[in-house]
Amino acid sequence: MSFMYRWISPLHDAFFCPSLPFTIRWRLIAFQPLLLLTNTIQYFQGSTLLSKNAETVIWIPLKRAPGHSVRAIVYHPPGRSSQQETRPLHINIHGGGFLGGLPEGNAPFCRKVSAETGAIVVSTTYRYAPRYTFPVAHEDVQDVADWLIQNSEGLWCADPTLMTVSGFSVGGNLALGIGQRLSRSEYRVKAAVLFYTPVDLRLPPWDKSKPPGFPAKDPLSFILPLMDAYAGPERAKYIQNPLLHPILADIQSLPHNMLIFGGKVDILLTEEMKFVQRLQDESTAINQRINSTIDGKEQSADEAYHIESDFFDNQIHGWLERMNPILSSY
């Protein structure tokens, strides 16, 4: 997917995707200026040209979509040669309602993770709705993870067996998809950090519970049908799919270490808290069994689960990305 398409995708899809209904087309046209504005902010905030850190832009081929590739930014630990030592691998996935966003969007976070942990951080993008619906974006980031497993050690001396993930908004949903895919492999994701992540897409945005303090009228309500353009067309078919709805996922398929952040003035609050509570209850039972003795032999502590969360008062969805308020919307 070309870099230019990232900036004009709503306009392109409105005019050149004949299968889209008119109710989506006119919203895409109205959404185009907002996307252009937020992409401009994201790009210049996170531009590798303006950064003093070692950052490179790469294009990662998609094995399930021959001829397609996605753009990613690689953040290198400052002051460290890529050949000096093996280091962890971290994958970050941006948000944007499955509609847009750039890998530069989370640059401050990615730079901090790389600098403080010594990890190679790869911030990737994926193909967008409404042109592409579930499971395309999930398959794209899984293909990225597979490519990094095969190439990161040779390119940057990064160890894919020490892989962690993070995601903002829908990026968190996609990050959990990577975790589910790799859960039974030697490259099982070690930990995940999720920021205001939708974990239950069985309901469209307008039917989700509104927490106390939520605005009576959302000024961006006209784009809500766009925010459902990825899951909505496939909802009935995949209503019980844990990849799209991580709230349904078996805890054994998720990372053992998870940190989940959310805002208390967010329509995602209810599902996030249910998700956290369920995982904490199940992890407590699992950890009790691990700490017990079976046939006189203790199980490995590496199998223990650590699920933590923090929900912040008076914070809306995407509050950590307030400079990018449109694409941080659900």
Rank of each mutant, 00 (worst) to 15 (best):
D13L: 03
F16W: 11
C17G: 00
L20M: 05
R27V: 02
L28Y: 11
I29V: 15
N39H: 13
I41F: 10
Q42N: 12
Q45W: 01
S51T: 12
S51V: 03
H76T: 13
P77T: 08
G79D: 09
G79E: 08
Q83R: 13
Q84M: 10
I91F: 07
G96E: 08
G97M: 11
F98S: 07
P103V: 06
N106T: 13
K112C: 12
S114W: 13
A115P: 05
E116D: 14
T117E: 05
G118S: 06
S123D: 15
S123I: 09
T124M: 09
Y126I: 05
Y126P: 03
Y132V: 00
F134I: 03
P135I: 07
V136F: 08
H138W: 06
D140Y: 10
Q142V: 14
D143R: 06
D143F: 04
V144Q: 10
W147D: 04
Q150P: 00
E153Q: 14
L155E: 14
W156Y: 15
P160K: 09
T161L: 02
L162V: 00
L162N: 10
V165Y: 02
G167V: 10
V170N: 15
N173W: 10
G179Q: 08
L182A: 04
A192K: 06
W206F: 01
W206G: 00
P212F: 02
P215N: 07
D218E: 09
D218L: 01
P219G: 06
L220N: 10
F222N: 00
L224T: 08
Y230V: 02
Q240Y: 12
Q240W: 06
H245T: 14
E271G: 05
R278D: 14
L279Y: 04
S283T: 13
S292T: 09
E298G: 13
F312I: 10
N314T: 04
I316S: 05
E321C: 08
E321N: 11
E321S: 12
S328Y: 03
